[in-house]
Amino acid sequence: MENARFLIYQVGIYYETIKRTGQDGYYSESHAVTTSDGYILDLQRIPFRRFENEENAPKTPKPVVFLMHGLQSNSVSYIFLGPDLALAYLLAEAGYDVWMGNARGGLNSRRHVQLNPDVERNAFFDYSFEDIGTKDVPEMIDYILKVTGQPQLHYIGHSQGGTVFLVMNSIRTEYNQKIKSAHLLAGVGYMEHFPNRLLRALAISTNLIYSFAVTHGIVEVLGPAETNEPSPEIADTTEKGLLDTLLDAITSLFGESEMLAPASIKQYAHFGQNIRAKTFKRWDYGPIGNMRTYGSLRAPSYDISKITINTTMHYTVSDDLLDERDVIKMSSVMPNARNRKIARESFTHTDFVVAPDAKELLYDYIIEELNNSSK
């Protein structure tokens, strides 16, 4: 049974999301998708143009676009800029059936058929970005295609939304056939040249920080309860100091915004393992665990050369979480990928979803490309 505080949190988040879309003049729907491992995901849909609804909208089928948010974010990131500027609304105006995913543990997806995230915390938050890429995203895509009756959709992913695209299509390669085209907005994958110095330094102690956090029940980052930081009763140790530094770094990266949503500490640990190893690989269980799980002493790398989708990797030279050299390397490995640099030198990692000039520098281009590929 979900406790009262959890219910209040969920209803509040849901109400604010629906209210925001309605205030902006758009009809929206909320769909629940239950994954194979029991997580209940919220999937938002904007099927019509502004001020249209089921009664006055044209009945002809529309091409489908699926948008996936980044780490510590949610579907609000694609409506944040409001009418005339936000990507989801621009796509709806261009005649697309727009769907926005919410990963497990995040906005209105902090639910499970059995696990209560406020009680069985360690079990509920035992997931990394690979679980989102191999379960959440493909199962949301299957749901969307079933509801719309379309054989394919277009994919847009920001930051971790790009990461999970790379994971999904390198492991579950059948999804290459279900995606017509993709646009990755600072999609994080290869990390040989990871640019953030503080996170790069903390990544050296990834396993130590993660083990300490899980031991003390600190498994959720920026959740609704006072569960984001170590308890005052925990003695000051090197491990606690490292975890405090990581949490402070996360707070400084994301600040306070309606786009924020909870995430698992294991998502950060998985990125940390890759930053430390300067690679893009699956969760590292250690030699014994890797042999048991993968049949090899080392965690295997994601083979993105298996991704055959027509993919554009948008990037900026002022990104503190993704280096230009890693983007260029990824696009050279994927057979049908190309890279595109944003034409503003100061454009940042979060500007992909919050900068007013993202429409001019990015969104107009994406919509033009989608229109061309949908013909």
Score class of each variant (00 low, 15 high):
residue 43 L to K: 03
residue 68 M to I: 15
residue 70 G to K: 00
residue 56 N to I: 07
residue 61 P to A: 12
residue 61 P to L: 10
residue 63 P to W: 01
residue 50 R to N: 09
residue 73 S to H: 15
residue 64 V to L: 04
residue 63 P to A: 07
residue 70 G to F: 00
residue 44 Q to P: 11
residue 57 A to I: 04
residue 55 E to D: 11
residue 61 P to K: 11
residue 68 M to V: 14
residue 43 L to W: 07
residue 52 E to S: 06
residue 66 F to R: 02
residue 66 F to A: 06
residue 47 P to T: 13
residue 63 P to C: 02
residue 61 P to D: 09
residue 63 P to S: 05
residue 56 N to P: 03
residue 51 F to W: 12
residue 58 P to Y: 01
residue 54 E to R: 12
residue 43 L to G: 09
residue 67 L to I: 05
residue 64 V to F: 00
residue 44 Q to L: 11
residue 57 A to C: 11
residue 70 G to I: 00
residue 61 P to Y: 09
residue 73 S to R: 07
residue 66 F to L: 11
residue 62 K to I: 04
residue 62 K to E: 03
residue 53 N to K: 06
residue 63 P to M: 12
residue 42 D to H: 14
residue 72 Q to W: 00
residue 49 R to Y: 08
residue 45 R to A: 10
residue 49 R to I: 05
residue 71 L to Q: 01
residue 69 H to N: 09
residue 60 T to S: 10
residue 46 I to C: 05
residue 51 F to S: 14
residue 57 A to Y: 05
residue 62 K to T: 01
residue 53 N to T: 05
residue 47 P to H: 07
residue 42 D to W: 08
residue 66 F to K: 11
residue 53 N to V: 02
residue 44 Q to S: 07
residue 68 M to Y: 03
residue 59 K to V: 05
residue 64 V to H: 06
residue 51 F to G: 08
residue 69 H to A: 08
residue 60 T to Q: 11
residue 45 R to K: 15
residue 44 Q to W: 15
residue 58 P to S: 10
residue 51 F to T: 10
residue 72 Q to R: 07
residue 59 K to P: 01
residue 60 T to N: 15
residue 65 V to D: 02
residue 42 D to T: 14
residue 57 A to S: 13
residue 67 L to E: 02
residue 49 R to D: 10
residue 56 N to W: 02
residue 44 Q to E: 12
residue 58 P to G: 04
residue 57 A to R: 02
residue 47 P to W: 04
residue 57 A to T: 06
residue 58 P to C: 04
residue 52 E to R: 03
residue 47 P to K: 05
residue 51 F to K: 14
residue 50 R to D: 15
residue 54 E to D: 15
residue 64 V to G: 03
residue 55 E to Q: 14
residue 63 P to T: 04
residue 71 L to N: 07
residue 46 I to Y: 06
residue 63 P to D: 08
residue 54 E to Y: 04
residue 67 L to R: 01
residue 71 L to T: 07
residue 53 N to M: 14
residue 58 P to V: 08
residue 50 R to G: 03
residue 67 L to H: 01
residue 45 R to P: 13
residue 46 I to Q: 02
residue 63 P to Y: 03
residue 50 R to W: 09
residue 65 V to A: 01
residue 57 A to F: 01
residue 59 K to L: 14
residue 61 P to G: 11
residue 70 G to A: 10
residue 47 P to E: 12
residue 69 H to Q: 07
residue 67 L to T: 00
residue 55 E to I: 12
residue 71 L to I: 04
residue 50 R to H: 03
residue 43 L to M: 15
residue 66 F to V: 03
residue 45 R to C: 13
residue 68 M to S: 15
residue 67 L to S: 01
residue 61 P to S: 15
residue 67 L to M: 11
residue 71 L to K: 00
residue 52 E to F: 06
residue 46 I to M: 12
residue 47 P to V: 06
residue 48 F to R: 08
residue 67 L to A: 03
residue 61 P to H: 10
residue 56 N to G: 09
residue 42 D to P: 11
residue 48 F to K: 04
residue 71 L to R: 00
residue 65 V to G: 00
residue 67 L to F: 07
residue 56 N to S: 04
residue 49 R to N: 13
residue 51 F to D: 12
residue 59 K to I: 07
residue 63 P to I: 01
residue 60 T to H: 10
residue 55 E to A: 12
